[in-house]
Design a protein around this nucleic acid. Structure first.
Length: 576
RNA sequence: CGGGGCGUAGCGUAGUGGCUAGCGCGCUUGCUUUGGGAGCAAGAGACCGGGAGUUCGAAUCUCCCCGCCCCGACCA
């Protein structure tokens, strides 16, 4: 039983000045966490109980799925990470340290290497596979910008699993098992979530999905089709367009277009010059970019911007993409800033990437590569060539679903889980092989699966809180029932104490506000802030032999006969 | 890393060169109060983020450093 008279807890009346998002604000105010440094937090008793409840659910679901729990150190030697090249690739995000002999160590940001080596050390036959193992571990990433309290910290707890299979079919099965286990886990945690397609990125692998918990303060943006259920991270959103069906126009026609620095001004000129009805989407925007020192041109309809994040996600292997600067233009005298068209790209030695909307046969109004001149009827396939199609244009609400062509909606969310088929990268680099039936050595294929355990505390808080405080799902809450004794008569406190003991006897987890000094109002406010799902008030109504039963979420209140209180409360709580 | 903001008691804050740094919450003691963050009285608690400088005098001005928050970039 948690007794508030002795619980290490001080709730705050004011919002902390350094907290912006709701979960952060409330977790601090309700005395769950305290900030130690940027992105580094301590857990107070209430917070740690809540955290452990979540951890327990995650662990139970992993175990139930047949995955085995292991545990690695947080502090790791450099060597395995050098073999996979991540000692360098991870860059400044890696926390590095040295021992007294000046040997290099790191604080693990993720543990692919260690898991791979563990399996390599024990197993060497196909008969040992498949295998899925996991750990719940503190990870360290020196994020350039930790933010939103415990949503993005530099030290956080992650459950990471890895599956090991002989072949792709096996990997697909392991992947499905994890997917199913994740659905159970997040459902039990009381989270609303969407499973969305994600970009596998540089790691390769054939399939990757994210579990996103919708929430306005989330950092991820995703699209959702309410009709067919298609969901994708905007980075992975696919643009589906019909082939060009119009007629092919006559030869391109160059025209004067002074003072048209923006698409809007160009459209205005077009409407004056060639009659009304021209739209930004009739024009073609040529965005010049540098991708790891290579100049590329990205073609998008004039009414859209290039989404650099999406572009990057769809260019695996490319580390840095930035917009053209004056110095870059200087290197390409054929490019007339503000009047660039794709006609001369080949001549200028520039690769042309295009949004799928720029279909073959379609014609566009775009720059003529001459100052103050544009061209119309410039036709894809005839007047210019696209080297490669790419998803790089910004995604908007109302864009069409690639599955069923319904307009999609856009929402923000917190990434709470990520599953993906890793493939053989790590097994290859660390030489994890097994002998197959024929005695031939084969590289194992892996899957990687993560749940942000500490982040889940914040995600649940984000989705469940209201104006007055936290409001946890029962299994996550630090207790099932919050019993408040009000007034000053010993009788009230004795009755409350007995009620608490009886309910605890029945297996409920109880928090008992047995403080003598604070007024009833203070205790009510605290209980609402702390967010335990059921509140029982023993006080005024006791004179009539009653106690008050409240439901935190709905605010419903009812009086219950004291004599029936234990069974009535037990029934109400366990039915929830 | 670029842009913006902030740093005064456990928390929230006032204080733009002048006396002993002010207030609210919280904390301690006493009395009163007791169903929606009670009242009165008396207390404890601050090297004003750190360092250097300007000045008769610095929380306040200057320089350097450190830390924190927000937007962006970044985030297997």
């Amino acid at each position: 039983m948690l007794k508030m008279s002795t619980l290490l807890l001080r709730t705050l009346r004011d919002d902390p000045a350094d907290a912006e998002v709701a979960s952060h604000r409330l977790l601090v105010r309700a005395g769950y966490v305290r900030r130690i440094a940027a992105g580094i937090y301590s857990w107070l008793p209430l917070g740690y109980i809540t955290y452990r409840n979540i951890e327990k659910i995650v662990r139970e679901e992993m175990d139930a799925a047949g995955f085995q729990e292991v545990h690695f150190p947080a502090m790791l030697p450099k060597e395995p990470y050098e073999k996979t090249n991540r000692w360098d690739e991870y860059g400044d995000d890696l926390f590095r340290l040295q021992d007294r002999r000046k040997n290099d160590y790191l604080l693990g940001p993720t543990h692919e290497e260690m898991f791979t080596l563990m399996v390599k050390g024990e197993y060497s036959s196909y008969k040992d596979l498949p295998l899925s193992i996991y750990q719940i571990q503190t990870k360290f990433r020196d994020e350039t910008r930790p933010r939103s309290g415990i949503i993005r910290g530099r030290e956080f707890v992650m459950k990471d699993s890895y599956s090991f299979d002989l072949d792709d079919e096996g990997l697909a099965i392991s992947y499905e098992k994890h997917r199913a286990a994740y659905i159970k886990t997040f459902t039990r945690l009381g989270l609303k979530f969407n499973i969305v397609s994600a970009v596998s990125g540089a790691m390769g692998g054939s399939r990757s999905e994210e579990f996103l918990a919708p929430c306005s303060t989330g950092e991820d943006t995703y699209v959702l089709c309410e009709k067919c259920g298609y969901a994708a991270n905007v980075e992975a959103m696919v643009t589906k367009v019909a082939p060009y069906s119009g007629s092919t126009p006559s030869a391109p026609e160059v025209f004067d277009s002074p003072n048209t620095p923006t698409i809007d001004t160009l459209v205005e000129l077009l409407n004056t010059k060639f009659g009304p009805g021209h739209k930004g989407s009739d024009t073609l925007k040529n965005v010049m970019l540098m991708a790891d020192k290579k100049a590329i041109s990205v073609l998008v309809p004039g009414d859209r911007e290039v989404d650099l994040k999406r572009l990057q996600a769809n260019m695996p292997g490319v580390k840095e993409i930035r917009v053209f600067e004056d110095a870059d233009f200087a290197k390409f005298p054929g490019l007339v800033k503000g009047y660039i068209g794709p006609q001369d790209a080949k001549k200028n030695g520039i690769e042309v990437l295009a949004d799928p909307r720029i279909v073959v046969g379609s014609h566009w109004i775009t720059g003529a590569n001459v100052k103050d001149q544009h061209v119309r009827f410039l036709t894809n396939g005839r007047d210019f060539a696209v080297d490669r199609y790419i998803e790089a244009a910004e995604v908007r609400a109302g864009d069409t679903c690639p599955e069923c062509a319904t307009p999609v909606i856009i929402d923000r969310a917190i990434e709470i889980g990520h599953i993906f088929q890793l493939g053989r990268k790590y097994a290859q680099a660390l030489d994890l092989t097994v002998l197959d039936k024929d005695g031939k050595s084969r590289v194992v294929t892996m899957g990687s699966y993560g749940i942000g355990v500490s982040r889940a505390v914040a995600a649940i808080a984000e989705q469940t809180h209201d104006e007055i405080g936290l409001s946890w799902p029962r299994e996550v809450a630090p207790a099932d029932v919050h019993i408040i004794a009000t007034g000053k008569e010993d009788e009230v406190f004795k009755t409350a104490q007995t009620l608490a003991e009886d309910l605890e006897e029945k297996g409920l987890r109880i928090m008992f506000d047995d403080r003598r000094d604070p007024s009833a109002g203070v205790k009510f406010k605290d209980s609402e802030l702390i967010g335990i799902p059921f509140i029982v008030v023993v006080g005024k109504a006791l004179a009539e032999g009653k106690v008050e039963f409240r439901i935190r979420k709905s605010g419903e209140k009812q009086e219950i006969e004291l004599l029936k209180a234990v069974s009535a409360i037990y029934a109400a709580v366990t039915a929830s």
